[in-house]
């Protein structure tokens, strides 16, 4: 089984979600007929209310949940194939992790390298360098020896971002990386995501922090079991679509202000 990060000769879209439907064990539909195409070197925000199927879509893309119908293609190949080539990284929600587990920050980030190690999984020099670089990049090099439970909310997010960085993947899926973090961490994560995009990575990020979405996301997808809207941020991130995606629950984000905020987006561009 080859575990190298081969660059596929074919270019084209990084992620194609084609008419994907996912069913819960109870028989209810979690996702129905969702189609998206994410190009290389782009960041896509995935928006929707709680229970709208955002995490389900992430997991279907990562290959953790089998679609009931439809298919996901990663660089034109099946997800299974992409997993073996080590090109997909996943940053889970905080609740999905057992924080009492007896592993250190360094151990967890080293797990990002495990697909590249030999039979006995003994880290090579390149693996240690990748881990140290990733820890430094997210600003937690000094916490390497800490047990993961002894971290703040923001630090916990940084650990799993570092693990994804150490993986040196081409696609990164982040499920709510900004929930429960302070503004400093949020800005730090956004900066890293922008750098990664400029390095050619394709990023899908589930977020509830709508106000900063136009600042770093190239495309936006809104779902509520079905796809509500998908496209370039400037076309899709509109009060009408947001109202449809969030219905009456969108309180912290005044829709009428949004229209005025649309223009200054240009100022962020060089």
């Amino acid at each position: 089984m080859s575990r190298h990060n081969e660059r596929p000769s074919d270019s084209g879209p990084a992620i194609v979600v084609d008419k994907v439907s996912v069913r819960y064990a109870s028989g209810q539909w979690a996702l129905e007929n969702v189609s998206l195409t994410l190009e290389s070197s782009s960041i896509c925000a995935l928006l929707g209310i709680n229970g709208s199927g955002k995490s389900t879509l992430c997991k279907a893309i990562m290959g953790f949940l089998p679609p009931a119908s439809g298919r996901v293609a990663i660089f034109k190949h099946a997800v299974r194939h992409a997993q073996r080539r080590n090109i997909m990284a996943y940053v889970p929600q905080v609740e999905e992790i057992d924080w009492d587990f007896p592993v250190s920050v360094y151990d967890v980030v080293m797990m990002g390298r495990q697909g590249r190690m030999g039979f006995l999984r003994i880290p090579a020099r390149a693996d240690r360098v990748a881990v140290e670089t990733s820890l430094a990049r997210v600003g937690i090099a000094d916490l390497a020896k800490r047990q993961i439970g002894a971290l703040s909310g923001g630090q916990k997010k940084r650990v799993f971002l570092a693990r994804a960085l150490a993986q040196e993947s081409r696609i990164m899926v982040l499920d709510e990386p900004f929930t429960g973090v302070d503004a400093t961490t949020e800005n730090a994560i956004i900066d890293i995501l922008k750098q990664l995009r400029d390095e050619g990575m394709t990023i899908l990020v589930v977020t509830h922090n709508l106000s900063v979405v136009p600042e770093y996301c190239d495309t936006v997808a809104m779902i509520n079991r079905n796809l509500i809207a998908f496209g370039k941020t400037e076309h899709v991130f509109t009060p009408a679509n947001l109202a449809q995606a969030f219905g009456g629950v969108l309180r912290q984000f005044p829709l009428d202000l949004l229209a005025q905020e649309r223009e200054p987006v240009q100022e962020h561009l060089p």
């Binding site: 290959g63 997993q83 080590n86 889970p92 587990f101 039979f119 993986q167």
Partner: peptide
């Protein structure tokens, strides 16, 4: 021979899958 893979599986099954 296999404790590191078993550890990865126990700690974060999804990540183990993502790595193939």
């Amino acid at each position: 021979l296999r404790w590191k893979d078993l550890l990865l599986y126990c700690f974060d099954e999804q990540h183990a899958r993502a790595l193939g």
